[in-house]
Design a protein around this nucleic acid. Structure first.
Lengths: 114, 114
DNA sequence: ATCGTTTATCGTCGATTTACGATAATACCC
DNA sequence: GGGTATTATCGTAAATCGACGATAAACGAT
């Protein structure tokens, strides 16, 4: 995954890329939005409103969890998912910082591409 | 890619996910940062500072270009890449909006759950 | 027209992702 | 313990990604 030439990437970029990868699927974005919209966030409900099989939804939830964006709390026989607000703010700040740095160096007024 | 159950995703989410996918690789992030850092951004220079083959860098640049994040301007025998500031601001706003919406609904102070 | 330089595309290969159904694990009820 | 409901994991197949070398395409110089 890191190329066969040796040489790795800065940790910051690797971390950011990993979060971006977790967001790089409309299903996961919708899942994330749905979890945020409702305070209660039982897996079954999420399965209902997604066009995916239960196992697939569970897989996506696992990825979101591994990225630290959501937390799964076991509640009886079911699992309640909620967004990790602190983490989300952190990630949001990281993205804002990235875009800020990128935009500040770029051209300012051009918007015409032939 | 859209599941075999029919039912697609909102355009906004698909678009955002696509951009996230373009950012979901440390090499592309580094490429993007390098292009933003210098006003001149000849492909050869980028190849020099990346631990990747020229063809691979070209491929990544193509993906960034297809995501609308950079533009390639042909300058004689070489190609000069620059960030698309307007697009970048737009995408940054979209991400900020996403994180804002996600965080506002989430829990406020909890951060310990075992 | 030919050569050298620079970049994009092609073809390929291994690894990863995405999706599914099937099955296992966990918790509740009787 | 047996039965039901809910969620996670396993196994698998198709598709995509990431990387490379090789080659084509565009341009400038001679």
């Amino acid at each position: 995954m890191a190329g066969t030439r040796g040489q790795s990437y800065p940790t910051e970029l690797v971390d950011l890329a990993q979060v971006a990868r977790a967001l790089a699927h409309p299903g996961r974005l919708q899942l994330l939005a749905a979890i945020a919209a409702r305070r209660s966030c039982v897996c079954g409900e999420l399965v209902e409103l997604m066009p995916l099989a239960q196992s697939t939804v569970s897989q996506h939830l696992k990825e979101l969890k591994e990225a630290g964006l959501v937390r799964g709390v076991i509640d009886g026989p079911r699992t309640c998912y909620c967004v990790d607000a602190a983490r989300l703010a952190e990630v949001g700040a990281a993205f804002a910082g990235l875009f800020g740095r990128l935009a500040c160096c770029g051209n300012g007024g051009e918007d015409d591409h032939g």
